[in-house]
């Protein structure tokens, strides 16, 4: 069963298409990785799903209804944004209290445990927190809310590697006990590759991949060997990338699967490599962009 659906959604800002015919579905009780480069449209997708932005065209459904100004839908949605801003006068406990008031499944004991885990001082003004502590507050609200649809938009800004791992561990443990639909937008693909069950890859406002993570892992391989042998093997497969050094050729193939072929070396491709290669094949100029 799906909790959210987008069909042919476009979002235009003047002449710029932030989303260009995006169709995707978010399955119930699944952790989704929403991946893509800066400016790919990840944040725009999440803002539209949470009724914060408005699609220019297409269909949007969350829990079977359009989310805009829909209290029934939005009361089941929690959206933690990158660089989430809080009211200047709020202390940490005020932000948590606000979330507690709004989410019926809020777990105060879990929130308290997370506060201790991330060493966030509950009585400190939010504007006095470090960047990492501020991100931790967002993570705590997102996890302890136990909203049926929880969206994290790059929530790790300023969190060090240990704190990020803590987030992944707590998310996975709580998800196992309280399954829900989680959308995790991130650039740190290797870090979350074991966490996410479904991958949606966006690039330039279009969906490049929408598949189960397990399927992707099994089907994509890097094949290395003599150029001629690799060329013969690769024929008919979806080639994502190729590198040639002298007579040796290495190609990344989708749908080939891991196998034994005399003279050829097969290596599994990490999710990050798959995302990078797929995005590169989309022939978008490689430059740091701004998230839309």
């Amino acid at each position: 069963m799906n909790v959210a659906r987008m069909a042919g959604v476009t979002k235009r800002y003047g002449d710029v298409a932030a989303l260009d015919g995006v169709s995707l579905e978010l399955a119930e009780n699944t952790i989704h990785g929403l991946l893509g480069r800066n400016g790919a449209g990840k944040t725009t997708v999440m803002r539209i799903l949470t009724g914060q932005a408005f699609e220019t065209g297409g269909e949007v459904e969350v829990f079977g209804q359009h989310p805009y100004e829909n209290a029934d839908v939005l009361s089941r949605v929690c959206f933690i944004r990158e660089s989430q801003h809080y009211p200047d006068k709020f202390r940490v406990r005020h932000a948590l209290r606000a979330a507690e008031l709004l989410y019926p499944h809020w777990d105060p004991a879990f929130a308290a445990a997370l506060l201790a885990d991330f060493a966030v001082p509950v009585d400190r003004l939010l504007r006095k927190l470090s960047r990492g502590q501020l991100s931790a507050v967002g993570v705590i609200i997102g996890l302890a809310s136990r909203a049926p649809l929880t969206l994290f938009d790059e929530p790790y800004l300023g969190l060090d590697a240990v704190a990020r791992q803590l987030f992944y561990d707590r998310l996975l443990a709580d998800y196992a006990e309280h399954p829900r639909t989680v959308v995790l937008s991130t650039h740190l693909i290797d870090e979350v590759s074991d966490l996410i069950e479904h991958v949606v890859l966006l690039d330039a406002g279009r969906v490049l991949i929408d598949a189960e993570a397990e399927t992707l892992r099994g089907e994509t391989v890097a094949v290395t060997g003599p150029a001629g042998a690799v060329e013969r093997f690769a024929a008919g497969y979806d080639e994502l990338h190729r590198e040639q050094v002298g007579g040796s050729l290495r190609v990344t193939l989708a749908g080939a699967g891991n196998r034994l072929e005399p003279g050829l070396d097969f290596e599994p491709v990490s999710l990050q490599q798959l995302v990078v290669r797929t995005t590169q094949r989309n022939r978008r100029p490689v430059a740091a962009g701004k998230e839309s």
């Binding site: 949470t50 209290a71 939005l74 089941r76 929690c78 959206f79 801003h85 200047d88 979330a99 909203a147």
Partner: peptide, 20 residues
Amino acid sequence: LQTMTQVFPFTLGLGVTRRA
């Protein structure tokens, strides 16, 4: 003024409708 510029965007992320 501060309520509208600071508390409103914060609560919007927590699933509060503009109407509410």
